[in-house]
Amino acid sequence: MELTTTWYLVLSVLMFSIGAVGLLVRRNPLVMFMCVELMLNAVNISFVAFGADLNDVGGQISVFFVLVVAAVEVVVGLALVVAITRRRSDANADDISVLRG
């Protein structure tokens, strides 16, 4: 059996779907962020697989930038979670409705 790019792509799609379902089902904002990380990682797998397939380093460069943006997103997102939890101790995704003006 030969290991082809398709294997990586199937794995990437599976991980992306799991992350998407988790994002829709879970209500704890922290776990929702983790599901977003899962989806980003799934895309990273396909970036690197495509890059290897095309013999181009561009896929790896894309993953590098995705990593940075993921780190930024987590920092700001967790700061928001901390700020919201200060007001209400049991914050979940439904409580975002209190942010309305």
Binding site: T5, V10, V13, S17, I18, V21, L24, V25, D53
Partner: peptide
């Protein structure tokens, strides 16, 4: 959520494996 996830899976597999298959 299950419907959306299944649809994403189907679309993704179609695009990635059937339509593109590689790059």
């Amino acid at each position: 959520a299950a419907v959306v996830g299944g649809a994403l899976l189907a679309i993704g597999l179609t695009v990635m494996v059937v339509a593109v298959d590689g790059s």
